[in-house]
Design a protein around this nucleic acid. Structure first.
Length: 424
RNA sequence: GGAGAGAUGUCCGAGUUGGUUGAAGGAGCUGGUCUUGAAAACCAGUGAUACCGCAAGGUACCGGGGGUUCGAAUCCCUCUCUCUCCGCCA
């Protein structure tokens, strides 16, 4: 959410930012509502002032046993006028808020301007893409042959876009989760949390998943709860409506969680394999920082996520998303894309964003720079560190051998109980 | 899920015959006196809030929302959360 005053004073800048994002925002209507909001507040508060004064007077007169009926009668009318203004005000504020919640964040200046994914800019590459001297297979074929990926049974039990992991497949998933958590907690200084997988509506609003993207989320029928689409939601909302001590910043959390995404619009793409599932595991990195540090922290966070792929020996590249591809709440995002032989391309495996104060304002997360100073909004950041299912897919494909078996990356062997290969 | 108790300022904690209580008292914090220094004691100050306004100033805020009233922290309704007991369960 942007600051009302900021929009009011920077109409051109905001309009321009919306255009760059191919987004719409009803700025004209916003300005009208903003104006009438302030007028209504002034009127209502003026009347409240007289009401407060006269009511006190009434108290005094009453104790002196004097007649007050003419005053109470008058105040009754004032009371009704106040009520009228307040009802009107509430309506205006609701409409204003609706517009405000629908306006995306303003991209940082150094974000490349562009229409779509095509215009994202590659920042760096790491690792050498392997040249196979045999016909490399897709992970879904390998998985079925090895008996470690079982979407058929999942379809029987639940439905499409779910997968049973079996045997060493399940073990590999678990090993990756532990490897990633260990790396981030022991070497990158993140504090581990394990969050609830369901959150209420207010939390979804806080991080910006709602109200615009209702159909992407799974909602629990008969309750107010949503299945989390990412641990970002519960972890960022941990500090909702709090004023943090400046000394505790930056706060860095790492959280493993399952993630649930309905993504109603995406049917038809990536129908095979682990790339696009309704439920997947992810290790998420979340930071709360001082505004002046947030872009440094974004670089570090991205590096922390990259380190996972480096240690696993998976080739990847980092791209900075252009304005047209940037997520709703983000001011700047790096995607980390891992090399996926079956796609003959890089596939997103992590998305690292600085939301600046966009989420903090929605969720009301502030900090006090120094004792006695006014509290201001923190900057929030997060990124996958990294998506586990896609990592399994990437390992299977990049580490496959000619006989259809899969080598386990060295760093994972201890987490696999010493197992070095997955074979039939 | 059933029965009961509660939610007040940075913290603890008064305040239910509605009015001068933005809120007693204490702690903490800040400054001062005293002291070689510190502690203790004493004195003084202290809404780390939001909104409107150029400002002066004003309004709101005693868990959230709604109601009664000229006026509500105080009365009524409702929701959320916490605690105790019972039930159920991993």
């Amino acid at each position: 959410m942007l600051d009302i005053k900021f929009i009011r004073n920077n109409v051109e800048l905001v309009t321009e930012a919306l255009e760059k994002r191919n987004a719409k925002g009803d700025i004209d209507n916003f300005l009208k509502l903003d104006k009438s909001r302030r007028e209504l507040i002034a009127k209502s508060e003026q009347l409240k002032k007289t009401r407060n004064e006269v009511s006190q007077e009434i108290g005094k007169l009453k104790r002196a046993k004097e007649d007050i009926t003419h005053l109470t009668k008058e105040m009754k009318e004032v009371g009704q006028a106040i009520k009228k203004y307040d009802i009107e005000l509430k309506d205006v504020e609701e409409r204003l808020n609706e517009i405000l919640l629908g306006i995306p964040n303003i991209p940082n200046e150094d974000v490349p301007v562009g229409q779509s994914e095509e215009d994202n800019r590659e920042v760096r590459r790491w690792g050498k893409v392997r040249d196979f001297d045999f016909q490399a297979k897709a992970h879904w074929d390998l998985g079925e042959e090895l008996g470690i990926l079982d979407p058929k049974t999942a379809a029987k039990v639940t439905g499409t876009r779910f997968t049973f992991l079996r045997g060493l497949g399940a073990r590999l998933e678990r090993a990756l989760v532990n490897f990633m958590l260990d790396l981030h907690t022991t070497e990158h200084g993140y504090k581990e949390v394990f969050p609830p997988y369901m959150v209420h509506r207010r939390s979804m609003l806080g991080t910006g998943q709602l109200p615009k993207f209702e159909e992407d989320a799974f909602k629990i029928q008969g309750s107010e709860y949503y299945m989390i689409p990412t641990a970002e939601v519960p972890v960022t909302n941990m500090y909702r409506e709090e004023i943090l001590d400046g000394e505790v910043l930056p706060i860095k959390h790492v959280a493993y969680s399952a993630c649930f995404r309905a993504e109603a619009g995406s049917a038809g793409r990536d129908t095979r394999g682990l790339i696009r599932q309704h439920q997947f595991n992810k290790v998420e990195l979340v930071k709360f920082t001082r505004p002046e540090d947030s872009y440094d922290e974004l670089e570090k966070l991205t590096n922390s996520a990259e380190e996972v792929l480096k240690r696993l020996g998976l080739p990847y590249r980092v791209v900075v998303l252009c304005t047209g591809d940037l997520g709703f709440s983000s001011a700047k995002t790096y995607d980390i894309e891992v090399w996926m032989p079956s796609y003959d391309d890089y596939v997103e495996i992590s998305s690292c964003s600085n939301f600046e104060e966009f989420q903090a304002r929605r969720a009301d997360i502030k900090y006090r720079p120094a004792k006695g100073e006014k509290a201001i909004y923190v900057h929030t950041l997060n990124g996958s560190g990294v998506a586990v299912g896609r990592t399994v897919a990437a390992i299977m494909e990049n580490y496959q051998l000619a006989d259809g078996s899969i080598e386990i990356p060295k760093v994972l062997v201890p987490y696999m109980g010493g197992i070095e290969r997955i074979t039939k």
